[in-house]
Amino acid sequence: MSAVPVLETRGLGRRFGGLQAVSDVSFSVPAGQVLGVIGPNGAGKSTFINLVTGHTKPSEGRVLIDGKDLTGARPWVIAQAGVARTFQIVKPFRGMSVRENVAVGILYGSNGTNVMSKALKAAEEVLEEVGMAGLGDRPPGELSVADARRLEFAKALALRPRLLLLDEVMAGLRHTEIEPSLELIRKLKARGITIIVVEHVMKAILAVSDQVLVLHQGKVLTSGDPRDVLSDPRVIEAYLGHRYVKRREGES
């Protein structure tokens, strides 16, 4: 009957000294779905991604990928299990061309190659896919903000992931630049890749998510259908404060 979810977390939490950055996050993402994760600044969204991808070790709880317990596994183990991520602050490898940046992911991914020329060729295909054809020879330092974010995307795709975690890939982009990213997410979804989108751009979350998870002060505030979640008074309060909600209630 129901298939094993691509990602499942059980009571996931992380403390930094006295700060409980994430606590008791339990949910699962079925294969092929797009999950939007939202929450105000400091809600624990990035920590959550770090916990899933092994960049931060959980203080408590479990992370299951394809039903396999990978709690606390090192990042490269997670990456080779088919989980790719982007970073909120772009992390290009300077001193390599854009094409070589992507080739690194192909060389070390789960079905990687040892042949440089093959990797470079495959990298070119990934670049075309994300709309960066012709930029392969550039050093990453010369890219525009939008292209630098697209490069993050391309590096993650180079792993040929089954689960993709996007940490604010649309932050700082103009409206016209957001549309191609959304298009790309839809295309990847159609190909069967499960995607978790962490984003501040609500329009983007609404446009692509099948489910939305709201984090607030490290805890799951609510989750479910995107439209229901975004009209939930608790979510509005988390973002805009309780006085705003009260005023609106008074008006209606």
Binding site: R74, A79, A84, R85, F87, F93, G95, Y108, G112, A156
Partner: peptide, 16 residues
């Protein structure tokens, strides 16, 4: 070279 530039990014691409 990837490790030199950014170890987190290198690890995220499957490099031990």
């Amino acid at each position: 070279r990837a490790i030199n530039q950014d170890e987190d990014a290198a690890a995220a691409l499957g490099i031990n």
